[in-house]
Amino acid sequence: MHSNLTDDVLTAESIRDKIIEFRDGLPGFPRNHAFVMAQRADEKPFVWMHSVTEPLLAFALVDAYAWEKDFTLEVDDAELEEMGSLDPMDYAVYFILRINQENDRTTLEAKPNAPVLVNIRNRQAKQVISTSHSHRIPEALCVRH
């Protein structure tokens, strides 16, 4: 499979490396367990997450700590244990972005109360519901064309 969204073609090697697994499926997409992260250097800290099951399905994500430097997250230890590590250093955190395209601008809208956690060591992923994120997190980024 190659990424339709970006120019770079993912090889079998790099796919294996970048596949993440939502053991319980992604909320709203219960049949989709495996996703591939694709990011061009100039897209950082944003990243595309493609479904392996449905190649035409993709999501735009952003590194939560890049979106909001003071972002803090409280997650139940049991949840982290299930994902294979209690060490916060083992996790990457993303917000799923909703893309609104209007005539002259595109708005990217984050949902800060439902971040995606990825254990970067074993590639286990889960969208958690955060009941307490302490800071006011900007919800949208506007890009003019």
């Binding site: 969204l5 100039d42 897209e43 595309w48 399905l57 735009a60 952003v62 799923i96 893309i99 980024l141």
Partner: peptide, 26 residues
């Protein structure tokens, strides 16, 4: 959360999505 994800889903078609994240990053 499921509903929000469904709203966030995009069709992996370069005609729709090309360059969005590059522009967002800059």
């Amino acid at each position: 959360v499921g509903a929000a994800n469904r709203e966030a889903a995009v069709v992996a078609d370069p005609a729709v999505t090309n360059g969005i994240l590059t522009k967002a990053a800059s």
